[in-house]
Simulated assay, not measured.
Amino acid sequence: MDRLTLRVPPDLIRRFDAAAASKGGRSRLLRRLMEEAAKAPFPEPLQAPSGRLEAKLGLRLTFADLAVLEREAASRGQSRTQWAVALIRARLHGRPQLNPDEAITFVEVQRELRRIGVNINQIARALNTAVMEGAVLDLEVAQLAAYSTEIRAHLIGVRDAFEGNLAYWAPGP
């Protein structure tokens, strides 16, 4: 359904609300006035398209709760709507919900792991094709072990970040 937003002076909205109170409320009266103005019946609502559905959820919060929500969202670099959607998705799907900074960091970690993987492939290829003796071979094997340790550390860091993210969205004690 389409939405119409309109700014009116406070006095006009008070008078309109008074008139609309006996006619089913603001929205109903506006629809009726629009139908009369257009001289056409109001069409039946369209069926939601199959596939991905998008819906809107409205919430009413106390000013105190809204202030806390806005502070929490701002601390994560999100709008209050983004924060609320992330909370709902985290609880519904049990997957991490990354804020913009976390997403950038995650992409950087992925790039770094790819770089390390390329280096390991180069070392492995060199070990397979070259005949190396003594110290040279030991140096290459040591470098390969260092890369392996670095990859494990990055993977542990990624796992810890995801676990921390999930813990953030989990219900409190």
Rank of each mutant, 00 (worst) to 15 (best):
K39W: 04
P43D: 09
P49K: 11
I104R: 15
E44C: 01
L69A: 10
V131K: 13
E44W: 02
L137E: 12
A130R: 15
G134H: 09
L6F: 06
W83Y: 15
A86L: 04
K56F: 07
F162K: 07
A67V: 02
A40G: 05
E54S: 15
G51T: 04
I156V: 14
D17E: 12
D2A: 14
A55W: 08
D65L: 13
P45D: 13
D138I: 07
S79A: 01
A84P: 02
Q122W: 05
Q78D: 05
D11V: 12
I13K: 13
P96R: 11
A167W: 00
Q47K: 14
E36C: 04
R28E: 05
E102S: 06
A126F: 11
N99M: 04
V85A: 13
R114I: 11
A84Y: 01
R111S: 10
E150A: 14
W169G: 02
R114G: 07
A124I: 11
V85M: 09
A40Q: 11
A20E: 02
A67K: 14
H154E: 07
R7V: 12
E102Q: 15
Q82G: 14
R115I: 03
L69Q: 11
E133W: 03
M34T: 09
A21M: 00
E72C: 07
R52Q: 09
E133I: 08
P171W: 00
L155E: 12
Q47H: 10
F42G: 02
L144H: 14
A142D: 12
G25L: 00
F106E: 14
V158L: 15
A37H: 10
A103F: 01
N128F: 03
G77I: 08
L155I: 08
A142Q: 14
I104F: 10
V109F: 07
T81K: 06
R91L: 06
A161I: 00
Q110W: 07
N119D: 08
G25V: 02
E108C: 07
R7D: 08
T149D: 15
R26E: 00
I120M: 14
P173L: 10
E35W: 01
R60Q: 04
N128H: 05
A18W: 02
L57W: 09
A67E: 12
V85K: 06
K56S: 12
Y147F: 15
